[in-house]
Amino acid sequence: MKRFILKFLIFIAMIISYLVGVIYLSPIDQDIFIAASIEKHKLLEKTEQPRIIFIGGSGLAFGFDSGMVRDATGYNVVNMGLHGGLGPQFYVNEVKPYLRDGDILVFMLEYIFYDGLFFGGRTTLVELSIFYPRSLLYYSKENIDCYFENLPITFQRRLRGIFTKSKKRNEYNYRRSGFDEHGDYTAHLALKPRLDKMGQYVPRKVSGKVEILMNDLSEFCKKKNVRLYLAFPTMNPPSGNPEKQFRDDLGSLYSDIKDKIKIEMIGSPYDFLYPEEYYFDTVYHLNAAGREKRTRDLIEQMKKTSMKFLK
């Protein structure tokens, strides 16, 4: 049996080395969108207090003007919004080690995540570890599960990348160099919108996982003397018959959030429902006009909270 186990382990080690080799050592485009995480972590490390840190998905990256918020509030702003594929658990995990006494943290979770979907992330999480191996240190159990689940698909993608010529990029492809100094994605602002309205979905309830994640974060922030706020994402309500159902679902979710999540809220979901002319390519990503309106609305709602503006 020893001989079998030894040979088997050697074989498995070789297979793992191919897997790791293809994923981590083969050439990769350094301008890939997710690699912007490196700069975002540098921002977290270097941005001086007083500061507000925003965490969330790509809706935050595309539809938020940190400069406007800085000018209005007097706080330095870090926009950590990057990609929904990292999952809510990772958004929280990656920011925790950087929080300092006196920081303000605003959590802006896209609606789709409230029902626990992609809680631990997707393939993006593995891709991020290629550029930013330190991200592995922020993993919790859900992220580890997601990592192993998505290793084979990442291996397949990377392998395909070795053997096929990468498609020529155009201005609509998201890229790392499209972010500004605050972590806002700005490369799309001058482009003509082309909206795909898929994804106008709102769950009716908050999943147990999300509830625990947010309330634990609230406790953590209290201990660290960090003020935590919950902000709502933007959404384009469907028109016609589905609108009533959408508003019912949103109402149900909002009341569930109020019941279950012990975090002060910035406005309500209804303050951030915008018509389709404010969107860029999906119902999560705002265009230039939408971004400006959303930031202005958010600042107005922030004034109504316990947050003290320095200006």
Binding site: F11, I15, Y18, N150, P152, Q156
Partner: peptide
């Protein structure tokens, strides 16, 4: 033999993994 087994194992890695 080892080449064949490696190909099979690598082939399995090219499968669909949605459990």
């Amino acid at each position: 033999r080892w080449a064949a087994y490696h190909l099979l194992a690598l082939g399995i890695l090219l499968g669909i993994y949605k459990t």
